[in-house]
Design a binder for these strands. Structure first.
Lengths: 197, 197
DNA sequence: CCGCGAATGTAGCCGGTGACAACATGACCG
DNA sequence: CGGTCATGTTGTCACCGGCTACATTCGCGG
């Protein structure tokens, strides 16, 4: 309902705020998101966001959590595209997808990794890049396809991807070199780790 | 000179500002450094910093540059400690030193890698982790100790270190596992890259 | 169906901040 | 010794986050 002009109640301000914030985050840094700005954008009073987030930090935390779920989506897409392929192919597909996402959403990634300085952060959910790679590698190890520790290899792989993302975001790797860098980084880590590879 | 109370001119406000800022950065995020706070700390008026930095961003840029030189110092220390050792040992020594520095100065590292969103960033000087590893590996390659591309290997190594730092800062690697993770990450990348290794 | 409490939004204030301008001080050089 | 210019100061503005007091609406229980 609420025919014309602004109805007193927005309807779903919380979601709208998160959406607007995520959007702003795509083309700017986290620190120059302003609650008041978001409120203005949504045609709502400057104190309205407070009803949904006690604190600016709480909004950022929620945003970080959304970020992890976005990563999950990306990885699921990669899994679909590389279904029934061998382990290495799957890891490369996931890696490329992950790093591309990071480049496209640097501020969001930064939020997701914001050191636990001000309060606790939500850890990456089951399925996200670190945990899921561990599962993948554990499974491979169980199948006897992996000759080294799944946990350690997963850690190195995650670090490799995170590092490539950081370098690319910082401008130390050109976008057109990125996929190759990911592929190569993963391949190098996989050398001599497998009986089958 | 400048006996008691505050002399009208500070003497070297610019350096003092950078020092205070670097210090604040060691126990906080970049975004909650305030020019006014620094000025207050140094017993100087709130507009004084403006004489030395047009902009808050300019101070942060200067800070980032300092950060790169700090990294250079660290790496030089590592080189001293591992002098006359083989390539792998040297790389591990550098890696551990670099990552430990990153963990100890997360906000500074963040500044140094701040994506070139708002203006140009100073690139890492000659000698810093990326470039210097490249030199190291190029030399090894010239000596015939390296069977793969120096540039590509350097990139993977840098990414590995940067990623491990990011994970540790984010709380995904415990501090006591860090050195081992670095050693292992480097070793894994070096598998089968060398005739001599 | 109504009335009341809870949820949501508004208006206004406060202290703090970065940027700016106008003015004051003093260092340095000819 | 005098002037110029770097450096520091005071004051102002718009904006921000957080808070409180108040207004409107929703929805549930009687």
């Amino acid at each position: 309902m609420s025919s014309q002009s602004t109805p007193y109640h927005h309807g779903d301000l919380r979601s709208a705020l998160l959406e607007a914030a995520e959007d702003a985050l795509r083309s700017g840094r986290a620190q120059d998101i302003s609650l008041r700005g978001l409120a203005r954008e949504l045609g709502v009073s400057h104190a309205a966001p407070r009803r949904h987030f006690e604190d600016k930090q709480q909004l950022l935390d929620a945003l970080a959590e959304i970020g992890w779920s976005r990563v999950d989506e990306e990885l699921r897409q990669a899994d679909l595209a590389a279904v029934d392929q061998d382990l290495r192919t799957l890891l490369v597909a996931r890696g490329i997808r992950y790093v591309r996402f990071a480049i496209a959403n640097p501020a969001l990634i930064e939020l997701m990794f914001a050191y636990k300085t001000s309060g606790r952060r939500p850890p990456p959910p089951e399925g996200s890049i670190g945990p899921s790679s561990i599962d993948l590698l554990l499974a491979a190890r169980r199948r006897g396809e992996l000759a080294v520790s799944a946990n350690h290899l997963a850690r190195s792989l995650w670090a490799q991807l995170q590092g490539l993302a950081a370098l690319a975001i910082g401008g130390f790797i050109a976008d057109e070199d990125l996929d190759a860098a990911v592929t190569e980084g993963i391949d190098r880590l996989l050398v001599n780790t497998s009986q089958a590879y």
